[in-house]
Design a protein around this nucleic acid. Structure first.
Lengths: 210, 210
DNA sequence: ACATACAGACTGACCAGTCGGTCTCTTGCT
DNA sequence: AGCAAGAGACCGACTGGTCAGTCTGTATGT
């Protein structure tokens, strides 16, 4: 295994520092110090502090879009797609919590060109969620009285907020949290008929008592 | 009606600027310019830029704790308390969206003393939500398989996230959004028995098609 | 000899906060 | 009523520190 490149070391150090203190409270000197390189090393690998922030955003949003595509491709019914999307999104926190934190906390500070590029991808991801919910309503699996955009944003909210409080060493594992969120969401959006479908019982915490 | 005080004008201008550009991207000079006063006027009314940020946090968290107390005092069953808390929280966005945005986006940048003071109140609010969910489980209204902390944080997430996307001029009114969120949450947490209780039908969108 | 990767002293812009000053009010005295 | 004197509100040029980004190197591989 090759040793970590300077670029990687910088990215990882920056990620942790941004997560803890916020983009503006972290100086390039601090990042340089923490990653064991120098001003020169930093600006050799990145055009600017902004570009570093952008690469962090970029790597995260690409990953998550990829996951959503997988969920779409691997399952056929809207209920299954939604369940899988929610579950895989939450599990993503295990590895990407710092990315998510920076993504939602600091995207405001991306310079315009970078911001537009990220926004496009973020919107694409949002649209995928909207599609699933829409499809679910059309096929009668999801309650027809729920409007697509609000329901979708509610789901996003529940999931995304996790970055604010989740601690790896906390009482609940990320998988447990994923199970609970998925249960809550499926319980909230499925029609009574779909909820009782045999194949869908696996969505619910069911008999497991926590 | 007395004209707005300089302090008020500063606070309002800062609120809008912080919401749009973020605390660090807004200079005191900009606030001063926007609120029609001067550096001197600013520092006459506030000890520091930090203190201004603190007063914004403080006014919001106090308001929201007060609302939660009202919901607790006015209703007797956990289901009613939860419904009311959720509903009033969401309606709060109508007036306080800028406060919420600053609160959740910039609290990291509060200086330690201010941060501690805000954190205490925020935790108190969190505990109130936890209590309602706990009580709901104990009284058998909420599903026993749902763990209190995760369920509570899921509810918070759904609601809080609204600040990221809600636009007053958007397709849905804040009241509609509140109705939908409350429906989703009640649908997700209530036991089947409680869900069928006659008095609780008002929680759901029911026959209304959107 | 040349390119790539990095080192670290330096610079210039920016910005929170200061400080001496002015301009109203209010209060108390005659 | 008239005036002096103090207080509170506000003004804006200035300062001192901070920090992103630059620039001149040096080392190592090809």
């Amino acid at each position: 295994m090759p040793a970590k490149s300077t670029k990687q070391r910088i990215t990882e150090a920056a990620l942790k520092l941004f997560e803890e203190f916020g983009f503006h409270a972290v100086t390039v000197d601090k990042i340089v110090q923490e990653s064991g390189t120098s001003k020169g090393g930093f600006y050799h690998n990145f055009k600017s502090k902004d570009e570093l922030l952008y690469t962090i955003h970029e790597s995260f949003i690409s990953y998550i879009i990829d996951k959503a595509h997988q969920a779409h491709a691997s399952w056929s019914t809207p209920a299954e797609k939604l369940y899988e999307t929610v579950h895989s999104f939450v599990r993503m926190f295990e590895v990407y919590q710092a990315h998510v934190t920076v993504f939602y906390q600091e995207s405001l500070y991306l310079s315009p060109v970078y911001f537009d590029s990220i926004k496009k991808k973020r919107d694409r991801y949002k649209d995928m969620m909207f599609s699933v919910v829409k499809e679910g309503k059309q096929q009668g699996e999801f309650r027809h009285e729920l409007p697509v955009p609000i329901t979708s944003m509610a789901i996003f909210g529940m999931i995304n907020w996790t970055y604010k409080w989740y601690k790896a060493e906390g009482e609940y594992s990320i998988r447990e949290i994923a199970d609970i969120y998925a249960d809550l969401i499926m319980q909230a959006v499925l029609t009574e008929e779909a909820r009782n479908k045999k194949d869908y019982q696996r969505f619910f915490l069911g008999h497991k008592v926590m």
